[in-house]
């Protein structure tokens, strides 16, 4: 079981980290641009919210598999097919949790408005400089919310993992799969332990996020 816990935490951490790197520029672009292309991209980013995870997993399985051009490319890059590996799982999780990172970030970026950017520009800060010294510090709430939501959401994912990761101990067997396993083999006590822990963990994380946000809001007077 420890294997599954560590693997899950590793997956969630790595996914959150990658999502920060991908999500920040993507959310910034969505917040700052207009037009049909932006709307289409925004729609794509939101798709994982409504699609059954199995649909996503199915297409990922196909596109990551050795028979597709993309899968072929990735296979040669990673030295083997990504399906049923931890790396494949990370890619799936990143796509699956993308809206949970991008949505809060985009809202925060939009709420900042253009004024602070203009002020920074009249104070000789280049756009990149402004982004790091003004936009990101002002987006603390969004960054925190996005990271926690992505992390917690990745912990709980099941469908995508099952489709592209399978159930390989130490490689792709995460907690949600482990619960499924225990239930199938009628080991209720073990299933209870994990399910209960995850329930408590999610509750505590989301509650502390809410409290933290309220506190920092009070602190900054925003």
């Amino acid at each position: 079981m420890l294997d599954a816990i560590l693997l899950t935490l590793k997956l969630a951490t790595l996914t959150t980290f990658i999502l920060l790197i991908v999500g920040i520029p993507l959310a910034w672009w969505l917040a700052r641009s207009r037009g049909l292309v932006k709307d289409m991209v925004a729609t794509l980013v939101s798709m994982p919210l409504v699609l059954p995870p199995t649909v996503l997993g199915f297409y990922l399985l196909i596109s990551l598999g050795p028979d597709s051009p993309l899968g072929n490319l990735l296979t040669s890059l990673f030295g083997g097919p990504l399906t049923f590996t931890f790396s494949g799982l990370v890619i799936g999780s990143v796509i699956f949790s993308l809206p949970f990172m991008v949505q809060p970030l985009r809202n925060t970026f939009e709420s900042i408005g253009t004024r602070p950017l203009e002020v920074a520009a009249t104070l000789r800060a280049s756009p990149l400089n402004t982004f790091f010294s003004v936009v990101l510090p002002l987006s603390r709430h969004g960054l925190l919310t996005g990271s926690i939501m992505s992390f917690v959401h990745t912990l709980g994912e099941f469908g995508v993992v099952l489709m592209i990761g399978g159930n390989i101990p130490g490689e792709t067997k995460v907690l949600s799969i482990a619960i499924y396993d225990y239930v199938e083999s009628l080991e209720w006590a073990q299933a209870h332990l994990i399910a209960g822990s995850m329930l408590c963990f999610s509750f505590i994380v989301i509650l502390s996020m809410t409290l933290l946000e309220r506190n920092s809001r009070k602190g900054s007077g925003a």
Binding site: R115, P116, E118, V119, T122, V134, L138, G221, A222
Partner: peptide, 12 residues
């Protein structure tokens, strides 16, 4: 040097 209508200080 630009002074806007509202002070627009950086709140952070």
């Amino acid at each position: 040097g630009y002074v806007f209508q509202e002070p627009s200080l950086f709140p952070h």
